[in-house]
């Protein structure tokens, strides 16, 4: 066929540009959890209430991300929410007595888990459980509590 060499070059450029755009989307725009979930260990956290926490929400320590939420289940007996998080293999010296809380980024933003380090020399490992947890602040409950305390205050007067 009269397949010009320029056709081949153009097609090569096109395919390369397509893949480059795809890579750009993967690296710059999304967070590619594929690479992050693979290399880490799972820890379980029990919460009374997780509020609006979703799978793949970030897990942070002192504001830096150390892992992600892998799955959320309900313990049918204790009615606790059991959150399994995957923590990056690089952070393998998190004390066993660390505590975890659920916070909201910004006023209306996504919810995430923050781990506050404890002081023990034993470190978290695959399958361990953090029991020292603080549940999510649910806005409605917070406002409700605020209103009742206001009402109580008025009665006191």
């Amino acid at each position: 066929m009269n397949m010009g060499r320029s056709v081949e070059i153009w097609v090569g450029l096109f395919v390369a540009a397509g893949f480059a755009a795809f890579l750009g989307l993967a690296m710059q725009v999304s967070n590619i959890p594929l690479f992050q979930t693979l290399d880490g260990y799972d820890v379980q956290l029990r919460f009374n209430n997780i509020g609006g926490l979703r799978e793949r929400a970030p897990v942070t320590m002192s504001g830096g991300r150390v892992g992600r939420v892998k799955s959320i289940e309900l313990d049918a007996r204790s009615f606790d929410a059991v959150v399994t998080v995957t923590i990056d293999r690089n952070y393998n010296e998190i004390p066993e007595d660390s505590s975890a809380s659920i916070y909201t980024s910004g006023l209306l933003g996504e919810q995430y888990i923050a781990i506050d380090p404890g002081g023990l020399d034993f470190f978290l490992e695959e399958g361990d459980e953090i029991t020292l947890t603080q549940s999510a602040l649910v806005l409605e409950r917070l406002i409700g509590r605020f209103l009742t305390s206001m009402g109580d205050g008025n009665d006191d007067d």
Partner: peptide, 12 residues
């Protein structure tokens, strides 16, 4: 924010 909210598998 884009990187935090855009998921590779779900979105891309």
């Amino acid at each position: 924010q884009m990187q935090a909210s855009v998921d590779f598998r779900d979105d891309v």
